[in-house]
Design a protein around this nucleic acid. Structure first.
Length: 564
RNA sequence: GCGUCCGUAGCUUAGUGGAUAGAGCGCUGGCCUCCGGAGCCAGAGGUCGGGGGUUCGAAUCCCUCCGGACGCGCCA
């Protein structure tokens, strides 16, 4: 669609004297399909051209009508409504979908650039709850979409593997821990010990000192402390990786907070040399009052570092070692101020990549309207949620398609897809209230629905018994076929907007639009029983839809089973 | 107190300067001798939180009030 908009805009630019890119931005889709395929509101042009909008629309209509790509251009109350030449456009879109679906989506805008995307970031020895789901799948989708757009992307998992909590973990394990239990169920067992530590510490405050003592031991290299800490990480990571595998999520780097312990001095020294550090209440901070922000804490009053320091060191590492010119952080909205501060400090340090740092914030996840609180032990394990969804999918498969070959694998794809899609279909800033009744409902605008649509297209093509499909030259689509083609043609604009806004929900909504259009087409137009050339055209359109859906589903992290 | 974000149908939401505010769930009623009914079609359901303003045009931009969430140094 970008291409055809360019052609139209060039012509409008020539006649009106406006900038071509401005005209492209003004082109919109009419609210009603019978008005046309594209529309240009001419009201804004009235002032500069000193003519009435209606007159401008009329004049533009006359010159646009001459273009081969346009069937009709009609002025209507200050709007210019444009109908595309359907046959040629359809052939172009369908052919591209079938033979070069990557090209349909992408013009590789990110070519030559490198981005590091930070997502998921669970805490070692803590539950991986539904709350972590958002960062994980939004991040994974952003990684895939940016790669599609031509970026070189390094996906990074910034594990919470350092801090005073590990002193508590060690202390708790030494008092009450059982190696076998931890091995069998590392996260749940370690978390149980952690919760117990807090409970007992209420009665016996001396425990807190014990926790602090063990963290100090850890920092000073006590062998036993380090051995346990490494073991907790190893066991936790094993468990996390199982979940990632279930979700189909991957990382290029696992770099925890501890990785930066020896890389922070350089940052602190540079800040000091540049005169950015000031003493405040015993701590050292960067004053940001000039920019309307509270100071950014760099060293605590006891001289130790804190998370902004770590984030500065890690940004440097991502830029220098990993070669990133673009840094993306998929982290909850509650940390917005923190990232604004860190990015501002990077700017004050003279880092030019500071302007390419983005905090991709998302809203809190609630469970049945309640806030989840790890400390209070109010967690919902993602593992349990996924298991439930997979069981539900298996039940429905048993009911609707009992002869399916690889039921287990498909149930996994569908169950996990339901959970992922339920989350990604909503604008990421909104809070999400996680409810089983919604997640386990497979009707309507859901993961199973879009996967089903893809499987259905595959089924038609299987029955057609043709390997190659192609749009018959000169075939002009009917209204319903056209509706689907117009949807497919918007793949390029969709990817660009989704990447620019770092928002997978843009892609999810595109998928729903394509699915609605395809199912409408499917119900109203016989494919296999049609005469030529209609049969070929409809098969090609089905093939095009299948290819577009498979790609788009991949971009938001869903599998696209051919049967389900 | 200051700052940021959110408020659209019973519920979940799309639309963020253009034409009659679109969907899904739930509810009511149709559609399988036909390519997969996890589907399709139709219906009921809306003071776009309230009020002011800017504009040819406002759900969208500005101001203000109300409701909710989240931040505002020694956790991350």
């Amino acid at each position: 669609m970008k291409e055809i908009k360019g052609v139209i805009a060039a012509e409008v630019a020539k006649v009106s004297g406006l900038d071509e890119s401005v005209v492209i931005g003004m082109l919109e889709y009419p609210p009603n399909a019978d008005m046309g395929d594209l529309a240009l509101p001419c009201f804004k042009l009235a002032k500069s051209l000193r003519k009435s909008p209606a007159q401008i629309a009329e004049e533009l209509a006359a010159s646009l009508a001459k273009l081969n790509e346009i069937e009709e251009a009609a002025p209507s109350g200050g709007f210019l409504n444009i109908r595309l030449a359907k046959g040629a456009f359809a052939e172009h879109v369908v052919t591209k979908s079938i033979n070069d679906v990557h090209g349909l989506f992408s013009s590789e805008r990110g070519k030559g650039r490198t981005a590091v995307v930070d997502y998921s970031a669970p805490n070692i020895a803590k539950p991986f709850g539904v709350g972590h789901l958002r960062s994980t799948i939004i991040g994974q989708s952003i990684v895939r979409m940016m790669r599609e757009d031509g970026f070189h992307v390094e996906g990074l998992n910034h594990l919470g593997d350092w801090g005073t909590q590990f002193g508590k973990n060690i202390a708790a394990y030494m008092r009450w821990g059982d190696e076998e239990k931890v091995r069998a169920n590392p996260i749940r067992e370690l978390f149980k010990l952690y919760v117990r530590f807090h409970e007992e510490a209420e009665k016996d405050p001396a425990l807190e000192d014990e926790g602090r003592y063990w963290f100090k031991q850890l920092e000073e290299g006590n062998e036993e402390a380090i051995r346990l800490w490494k073991w907790f990480i190893e066991e936790s990571l094993k468990a996390f990786k199982e979940t990632y595998q279930l979700l189909g999520v991957e990382f290029d780097h696992y770099l925890g907070e501890s990785f930066y312990t020896d890389k922070m001095d350089a940052v602190v020294n540079e800040l000091r040399e540049k005169g950015l550090l000031v003493e405040d209440d015993g701590a050292e901070v960067v004053d940001l009052s000039e920019y309307g922000m509270p100071p950014c804490l760099i060293l605590k009053s006891d001289g130790t570092s804190i998370y902004p320091t770590r984030d500065l060191a890690s940004a440097e590492y991502r830029h220098r070692v990993l070669g990133a010119d673009t840094l993306v952080y998929v982290v909850g909205a509650e940390q917005k101020l923190h990232f604004q501060q860190v990015f501002k400090v990077l700017e004050l340090m003279g880092r030019d990549y500071a302007k390419n740092c983005t905090h991709v914030a998302f809203g809190l996840m609630k469970f049945n309207g309640e806030r989840l609180s790890t400390r209070r032990g109010h967690v919902v394990y993602l593992e349990d949620v996924l298991t439930k969804a997979i069981e539900e999918a298996a039940k429905i498969i048993e009911d609707k398609n009992p002869n399916l070959a690889n039921k287990q694998e498909v149930a996994r794809s569908v169950g996990v897809g339901a959970v992922i899609f339920n989350d990604l279909k909503t604008y990421r800033i909104h809070e999400v209230d996680f409810r089983y009744e919604d997640v386990l409902n497979f009707d309507g605008e859901t993961g199973p629905y879009v996967q089903y649509t893809h499987a259905r297209a595959c089924s038609v093509l299987r029955k057609a018994e043709t390997r190659e499909t192609a749009w018959p030259a000169g075939y002009v689509p009917n209204e319903i076929e056209w509706g689907l083609i117009v949807q497919l043609s918007q793949a390029d604009e969709t990817l660009e907007r989704a990447v620019d806004e770092y928002d997978p929900s843009v892609m999810a909504r595109f998928i729903l639009q394509v699915c609605h259009a395809f199912n409408r087409f499917y119900h109203n137009n016989p494919i296999l029983q049609s005469d030529e050339p209609t049969r070929s055209a409809r098969l090609a359109l089905t093939d095009a839809t299948r290819k577009v859906l498979a790609k788009a589903l991949y971009l938001i992290g869903l599998d696209a089973p051919e049967e389900m």
